[in-house]
Each structure stands twice: as C-alpha cells, then as structure tokens.
C-alpha cells in the first residue's frame, strides 16, 4: 500500500478552475500529480454521466471544479453544476462508493495556490480511502477484499 497512488479525474471549467491550474503551474507551485484533468467549457456541462463513467472506468476519486458563484462565464452554469453534482452524489451513495471519493470545489483563475491545496488535500483523502472497489485489477482489489 505504501507505494499506491490514486488515480483521480479532475473536471475543470475553461474560464476559472482550468486557468487556476495554469496559474499554479506558472507560479511553479508544487502539488501531487496523480490526476488527469478534463477541461470543459463550463462546470454546468459536467453531468452525472461524466462522473459516473469515470468511476465505472476505475477512477479512485473525481473532483468537479468551476468558478465561484457569481463568476461563471455563463452566469449560472455553476448553479446547474450543483444540481448535477447532487444527483451524482445521490447515486454514488446508493452504489456504495465512499462519498469522500467525490468532491465539488470552486477555484478561480487567480487561485493557483488554492488549486494546489485542493489537489493535495483531495489526493490525500482519496489515498486514505484506498483503491476504488470498482477499479478492478488495475489497483489490486485485494486491498478491499
């Protein structure tokens, strides 16, 4: 287990959180690298199907991120994102996946430091939970058997 690193999917909106990741990079901030980022135009686009598919394919954790309320480039896209996120969380709960594997965060384009902190914190949280039970062979299901 000591060498195990989680496999995390981060959904980020083009205008804030993706730019926030950029800001973190430009400032050369250190953070853990165990995630793949999927950029969408707005967090309102991140429907349950995206997140559930990520879990189905074995993601150990999924982070959904977008602009702070009032900052969304499309005015209310992130309000939609909250609705979609709630639905997703309801279903994740029923399926028996730990809720700690799923998280919603608002990160602005200026918040490079916050981006790095959220990533580190979430990575640690998912690492503590261990491999997703749906990850199958990839992560060694033995840890959860």
């Amino acid at each position: 287990m000591s060498t195990w690193d989680p496999n995390i999917v981060v959904f980020a909106c083009n205008w804030c959180s993706y730019a926030g990741a950029d800001t973190a990079g430009v400032a050369r901030l250190q953070h853990q690298p165990h995630f793949r980022m999927i950029r969408v135009m707005c967090s309102g686009r991140i429907q349950p199907g995206f997140v559930l598919r990520a879990f189905e394919k074995g993601a150990d954790g999924v982070l959904v991120s977008g602009c702070h309320f009032g900052d969304c480039h499309y005015v209310f896209g992130n309000e939609r994102a909250v609705e979609q996120f709630e639905k997703t969380r309801n279903v994740v709960r029923l399926l028996g996946l730990e809720e700690g594997r799923l998280r919603l965060e608002w990160i602005s384009a200026a918040e490079g430091k916050r981006f790095a902190e959220v990533i580190d914190e979430f990575t640690d949280q998912v690492r503590a939970l261990g491999p997703s039970p749906l990850a199958g062979e990839r992560a060694g299901a033995a840890a959860h058997a």
Binding site: L52, R53, E56, T88, L95
Partner: peptide
C-alpha cells in the same frame, strides 16, 4: 449514459 453506467457498475461485484 449515466443510467447505463449505473447499471454496468451494479454488475461489478465489488461494491
């Protein structure tokens, strides 16, 4: 595809 994902995940025995 959310509902199909849920159905397929239920098919995996692990949760």
């Amino acid at each position: 595809g959310a509902l199909q994902s849920v159905m397929r995940m239920m098919g995996k025995r692990s949760t």
